[in-house]
Amino acid sequence: MTQRATGSFKGWLYGSGVMLLCVWVLLPIGLIGLGAFGGRPAVYQWPKTLMPASLSLDQLAVFF
C-alpha cells in the first residue's frame, strides 16, 4: 500500500469515527423528538416507523 493510500484510508477512518460519534449523540435526541410529535399512539406503536403516522403538536399543549 502506498503512503498516499494509507493516508487517505486513515482520513476516511477518522472521518467515519467523527460521524459515528455525531450519530451516537444525535440519534437518540432525534428519536425522542419524533416521539414527542407522534402523539400517544406513537409511543405504543409496533413496529415503530421513523416518521410517525400522524404528526401533532397536542403533546406540547400540556405546557400551556
Binding site: 416521539g35 409511543v43 406503536q45 409496533w46 413496529p47 415503530k48
Partner: peptide
Amino acid sequence: AILQNTGY
C-alpha cells in the same frame, strides 16, 4: 423510548 418492548 429506544430500549423498551415496543422501542426503536
